[in-house]
Amino acid sequence: MLRINNGAGGQIRPQSQKVRDLKDTFSTYHPVVNFAFFCAVIGFGMVFLHPVFLSLSLAGAFTYAIRLNGKRAVKFTLLFVFPMMLIAGAVNPLFNHRGVTILGYMGDNPLTLESIVYGIAIAIMFGTVILWFSCVNVVMTSDKLMYLLGRIFPSLSMIFAMVLRFVPKFKNQIKLISKSQKCIGRDVSDGTLRQRAEHGIKIISVMIGWALENSIDTADSMRSRGYGLPGRSSFANYRFDSRDRIALISLITLIFIVIAGGLAGENNIQYFPYIKTGEATLFSLFTYACYAALCLLPVFINVREAVVWKRLRSRI
């Protein structure tokens, strides 16, 4: 049901270009920092159901998505995230009849206040995670993922890199084959419907045969140049500098405080049979502040960068 098929409307285009024109400072940090940040906010976002935590994460995800995608983020939220949130919000009261505050009956089943509130919480959680992923799509470019994968899974990241190259290459080759088939009247636009289908399959199978033979040549060439021998070096355009160290240390500190707060029950909320939260203490306020700092970290970094840049420029 409702399979999520979101994204850039199917454009085949490497996503790194978008980042370059956007000048998002957080994207220029080391991939490890980016990855750790997204693991943390998405993991926490899927787990915490406390209203304060939910709203902080939603605020962080939404501001960062707008920072990254501008108007597109607003459109994406209204057209895609919001309807999904509505469905998620509606599913729970319809199928969940627990809770003590009964507002009315649908048929024989009670409609409870608790299940409605719970549905809203789940809906916000869902929307937040989708928004975070829309940020992942922009920030975690394929070269960053390859860099991270390459350490643990070198062959898989090799496959990854090759596939990214092969897809546009094959598209070009299909065009070439189709043009040359057209010269002998065997393109997909020639003949009856049945013949057209046959021509299409012929073109695909020519392409696949070419791709395999061609790739074997590449493989042999790789082997003769020493692929697979020990002492392999890898190209990486990333340097872990002091800026990244500071960001990573503060990220890890914030994550630990939030986890500690979670273990101490600061994020606990009971929805059924009745809604009950813990008392807000000083420590819980501290945990909220840390969670807010965590979720807004990229936005902070961007704002700080803009301020520093402005100050430096005005000094010149």
């Binding site: 090759m162 596939v163 074997i216 493989a219």
Partner: peptide, 18 residues
């Protein structure tokens, strides 16, 4: 895995993605 195995998997994956 050898280069040939890697590349065959990459080609098949690329065809699927395409």
């Amino acid at each position: 895995p050898k280069a040939r195995e890697i590349i065959v998997i990459a080609v098949l994956t690329a065809i699927t993605v395409a």
